[in-house]
Amino acid sequence: MSEPILDVQNLSFHYPDGKVALADVSLKVGGGETIALVGPNGAGKTTLFLSLAGVLPAAANVIRVAGLDPGVAAQRKKLPAYVGILFQNSDDQLFSATVGDDVAFGPLNLGLSPSEVHARVTEALAQAGVPGFENRVPHHLSGGEKRRVALAGLLAMKPHLLLMDEPTMFLDPRGRRDLIRWLKTYEGTKILATHDLDLVLETCSRVLVLDGGKLVADGPANAILADAALMDAHGLEVPYRLQKSTVG
């Protein structure tokens, strides 16, 4: 593994009602890796992402992202420049009145100059496959377009680590295929929380299995996803493509 961009040691998180969302999660992610985070509903995937991005509180010296500790207030403020989250529902992320304003939201918060922000917005929209959408209104976009605009909002921040929560949700097959193509070409570090195991097989080299807030498996995608006993024990299924090769 190359120099870790993400280092988590014994991360735990309880919700105010006492429910354990994460229990002693430890992991390391190297720069440029594309990793899948899989697990049943309520496993803690979104909570883990929110903790890594510094949105949910974490103790000091538990998480290090690109050398920053989200447990330290001064460093947590710098995190948005390094970590981007693509949320499950694009409507949560697109809160501005126009697409241009929404994509510019993050870069403006970074204190960049207007000309730099304009350049980043144009570049990010082009990268996400929606060039010229600056003046469009978010609620007039299709599900796939919203997804791309939400992605552009992250790319405009030029993050070192991209966390994508159910990236294929609301996408039609063409949109999903475009996303897979994009994931293969984008060189940054990515963690994908998803139930789409075929997407995982196509794009990720490594898989983390999270269940009940605990990291129960970590290894190469093909080996983990083909382990029928492990998958079954944690409410998952061996992808059809691997089932066929096992039978064959």
Partner: peptide
């Protein structure tokens, strides 16, 4: 619930309570 999620999305993109705008 949506309001909570929107706030998370804003915080993840560096929102510090000040809305900034490109158009002067």
């Amino acid at each position: 619930e949506q309001a909570d999620r929107v706030y998370h999305a804003m915080a993840a993109r560096g929102f510090d309570g000040v809305f900034r705008s490109l158009s002067a």
